[in-house]
């Protein structure tokens, strides 16, 4: 375990802590599902036990009037449990749909999984390892990627997890409501120290969070860091204002369709922009000559996230 003070340790925990209303909602779903499960199974258990004892060989009981088929009964015990449980499919799918669509105003935190640690970057540029501080009352979107194998960011207090994949961004969001310390884990097996790739999740009131941000110390926001990288890596030489080389204009690029050489288009999302920086020769953009060098192996994942953060702000500046 990481050395930080642990969350409340109970000798025997029987119900997990919930840090959000959504988590409580999932608990209700599981609770109701358990109730229906018992409704469907307890009669079977009782019936089997009762029949086994009642009709034991040698007992004198009425064994007559049995039939060996009854289509109506069989259809009903096929279909009634199915439709009963189908309600839970719908309920679960509805919650899942909410989990998949983060509100637009969410605070975006970048996360990188690698063997065997988590790195989080806040929009203000504050970075932390393994532990994560988040404010209450505001939706938080975690945009994450893996640097090596598949990991999975698991936040049981919010009843959510999402895998981090190499080469592709995935997202997870939650709205914290109850301040406290909770655990976070890597839940997808990732090698030697998989079981120590965990940390603590600090849910704080907005003011505490602001205080923590200022103490965590970062002079520059993620976008500002990205802007500096943009010139350091020479991106501004071609993509910047007044560049002599004809390179695609990045202002307003984010989340717009980009026409592809040979027809079709792709949406310029985080994964696309990252891919274009690393492999500019893939999926050439229509109307431009490809002259950009590849930055594969040059720019690390955390700096890629900063560059993308900067490119996103170019949308508003134009």
């Amino acid at each position: 375990m990481s050395g930080a003070p642990s969350p409340a340790v109970y000798p025997l925990l029987l119900w997990p802590q919930a840090a959000s209303q959504a988590a409580v909602h999932v608990d209700w779903l599981i609770f109701a599902f358990t109730a229906v499960t018992l409704l469907l199974t307890v009669p079977i258990f009782l019936a089997i036990t009762y029949f086994a004892l009642m009709y034991r060989s040698g007992r004198q009981v009425d064994r007559g009037h049995t039939s060996d088929r009854n289509v109506k009964i069989e259809l009903s015990w096929m279909l009634i449990p199915f439709f009963l449980t189908l309600a839970f499919f719908a309920w679960g799918a509805q919650i899942f749909d909410v989990e998949k669509h983060a509100p637009a105003n969410a605070l975006e935190i970048q996360a990188i999984g690698r063997q065997w640690m988590w790195k989080f970057q806040h929009p203000g540029g504050q970075a932390e390892i393994n532990d994560l501080h988040v404010p209450t009352g505001q939706p938080v979107l975690i945009n994450m990627i893996s640097q090596d194998v598949i990991h999975s960011l698991y936040l049981p207090a919010f009843r959510v997890q999402m895998e981090t994949l190499p080469g592709r961004y995935t997202q997870l969001w939650f709205k914290a409501e109850r301040p406290g310390q909770y655990r976070l884990y890597c839940s997808e097996y990732c090698g030697t120290d998989h079981s120590v790739m965990d940390g603590l999740l600090y849910v704080m009131s907005p003011s505490d969070y602001a205080r923590w941000l200022s103490q965590a110390g970062s002079s520059q926001s993620l976008a500002a860091l990205g802007k500096r990288l943009f010139s350091n890596y020479g991106c501004s030489g071609c993509h910047g204002a007044g560049a002599t080389i004809r390179a695609p204009d990045l202002a307003g690029l984010y989340n717009r369709p980009v026409p592809i050489d040979g027809g079709g288009s792709v949406i310029a999302d985080d994964t696309y922009i990252r891919d274009k920086i690393l492999n500019p020769d893939n999926n050439l953009i229509a109307g431009y000559k490809q002259v950009m060098p590849s930055f594969k192996g040059v720019i690390p994942e955390d700096e890629l996230m900063q560059l993308i953060a900067y490119i996103k702000t170019m949308e508003t500046s134009s």
Partner: peptide, 16 residues
């Protein structure tokens, strides 16, 4: 198994 086939429940219980 049906619990785990339920989307929102699996998001919590997957890989546990």
């Amino acid at each position: 198994g049906l619990f785990l086939a339920t989307l929102a429940v699996d998001a919590h219980l997957h890989d546990t």
